[in-house]
Amino acid sequence: MDKQYTPPDIWTHDAESGGKWASINRPVSGATHEKALPLGKHPLQLYSMGTPNGQKITIMLEELLALGKDAEYDAHMIKIGEGDQFSSGFVALNPNSKIPVLVDHSYDEALPIFESASILVYLAEKFDVLLPKEIVKRTHVMNWLLWLHGSAPYLGGGFGHFYSYAPERYEYPINRFTMEIKRQLDVLDKQLADNEFLAGDELSIADIATWPWYGNLVLGNLYDAKDFLQVDDYKHVQRWAKAMLTRPSVQRGRIVNRNWGEAWEQLENRHNAEDIDNVLKLQPA
């Protein structure tokens, strides 16, 4: 490295040195401004953005609808680059100011659910699908769901930050996080060598949680790092990622609360199935 960093005796926040996300990152929690959240007509209200963590929930909701469940929902865009997650309305639902947040209005008092793994478990239990009741099978699913919940920060907050978003590229952190991401891809590849899905032969919330991160990564939809990471070497992850992408729920859920990419990949707010249908019609044949 060209220069060494010597930590000061006491750390202070430097809002000018944090790169792309410096303006929205703070060392304290709480609201920065007063703003109420929009409210749609369905009992399930999602406040999110189509990042990998956001895609987990919209793919899950679309899978529930495909299974014939009464899971209609409104999805409202939270523009994290503009600090929407620090509004008073959002902070009241999630004091941690992170997307996604789901609110279920089907009870006497509205129930907010935050943390993507918690939302997936909640929806699976509410609609009795994609999470087995039998303890052995359920434990396999929970193992992989929580593996992803612990691993994704290395991919997003670690590798993704230093490879794509940091103000400068530094060799040491990129090497450190690249090694860990390739190890995680190897873990997945070995598991998927003998299993159609992560926890066995049935789709589960573990697959729905993992695809937006590692599926997008190996298909070249995340960080533009396919060649750098040699993702084609992970044959079984590739097979699984491509198979998941053929599911209508993945094709539909991945475009919700999104305002970047091709025109057929962008739907800022979703209120009914036709909203997605109209966007997907724009996809080239």
Rank of each mutant, 00 (worst) to 15 (best):
Q85K: 09
A199G: 03
Q266P: 04
G215A: 12
Y170H: 15
R176P: 00
W21G: 04
A75W: 03
L185Q: 05
L222F: 15
L280G: 01
P8T: 14
G261K: 13
G253T: 03
H33P: 00
K3V: 08
H33Q: 09
R239V: 12
I57F: 03
R258P: 01
Q191H: 09
D128I: 01
H13L: 11
P7F: 15
K182H: 06
Y5A: 05
P95W: 11
K235R: 13
E34I: 04
P52Y: 14
N53D: 07
M1T: 13
G160P: 08
L148I: 08
E196H: 14
G83M: 05
W144I: 06
L37E: 02
D128V: 09
P167D: 12
Y172W: 11
S29K: 15
A209L: 08
D14C: 01
W240R: 10
W213A: 11
T139K: 03
A166S: 13
N143L: 10
A124W: 07
M77A: 07
G160Y: 12
D14R: 08
L111S: 04
P248W: 01
P95G: 13
L111V: 07
V141K: 00
I10D: 12
P284N: 13
G83Q: 06
V237L: 10
E180N: 06
L222V: 15
E62M: 01
G200M: 11
K56M: 06
L64T: 01
N25K: 10
L37S: 09
G68K: 10
N269L: 09
H236D: 12
Q4I: 14
K69D: 00
R252C: 02
L46H: 05
G261M: 12
Q45W: 03
T246I: 01
S17N: 11
L46P: 00
D108K: 14
K133D: 13
D9H: 14
A199T: 03
F159Q: 09
S116N: 08
N269Y: 05
Y223I: 07
Y5I: 14
